[in-house]
Design a binder for these strands. Structure first.
Lengths: 144, 144
DNA sequence: ATCGTTGCAAAGGCTTTGCAACCTG
DNA sequence: CAGGTTGCAAAGCCTTTGCAACGAT
């Protein structure tokens, strides 16, 4: 959020801070959820910010590489993006019927458990786990 | 695997057992991993089984709906499919650099933990969780 | 014989790319 | 000013669909 941090991050990656990028980040800060490229594009149009769809894709990709956003996938054929909020991870409950998605913050026991699990997996498979994603599929309140 | 079970399953869903379907399932049984539609298609071609790509897609979809296969997504833009092996779930370690994927079977403590977690989430969000998927991203043995 | 299934090619949907004009540091 | 960034349209991919011929029950 603080504009300073943005500038620093962009400088570090040798990227420029443009109005498109700022506008895209504002969309995520306002909507606070997982958005597809087209949803971001539409949201910008609604705010009279004329940003081409290609630019939206390019910047979602850039912001993902910078670690500011990350991709999530719910099985509907589109990539979605959400703000990376450290250190609070969140996972998703996806409704198999209506496709709605509930975000929930990792419970404390859960974070602890996963952390231990990651250590175990790192050892066992000589891996270096950097992040994880968990999806639960089922029926939501309305559809069950 | 037992052909009998297939016949029963297909009869139940009012579908016919065709040579294409049998060939597709054989590919999964032989290769025993997550395959994309095109990988299945290529594998069939290699076996001199002429099955159109559209048929591959249609049957992967059908088999998924029947619960025989399920979809997984590793972030590379393609859907992958794998055989559903009850009751042993497995999760994935995905390398951010080379894209390789390691499958590992859920550890016992893990199954237990997730099971409890699912109950908690069902109560908390009035959900009915039917399945889950977990992905760990990082660097593999070769790339770390 | 009926009705699901297949192949082919065309269409569709999401994402990427080429390139000239534009803007930031 | 130099070099990253943008918009537009075209191209690229993966996936789905229409339709006539085919095949399983």
């Amino acid at each position: 959020m603080p504009k300073r941090e943005w500038d620093r991050a962009f400088a570090y990656f040798k990227k420029k801070m443009t109005s498109s990028r700022q506008a895209i980040m504002e969309v995520f800060e306002e909507e606070k959820k997982h958005l597809s490229a087209e949803e971001v594009y539409d949201s910008l149009k609604g705010k009279n910010q004329k940003v081409g769809i290609a630019t939206v894709y390019r910047n979602l990709d850039l912001l993902t590489q910078m670690g500011i956003l990350h991709r999530v996938y719910f099985g509907d054929g589109l990539e979605h993006y959400e703000i990376t909020r450290k250190p609070i991870h969140h996972h998703h409950l996806v409704c198999n019927k209506c496709g709605s998605v509930i975000d929930y913050s990792e419970l404390i026991e859960e974070s602890e458990f996963i952390s231990k699990l990651e250590q175990e997996l790192n050892t066992r498979y000589n891996f270096k786990i950097e992040s994880h994603q968990m999806y639960f599929y089922g029926l939501c309140k309305k559809c069950r």
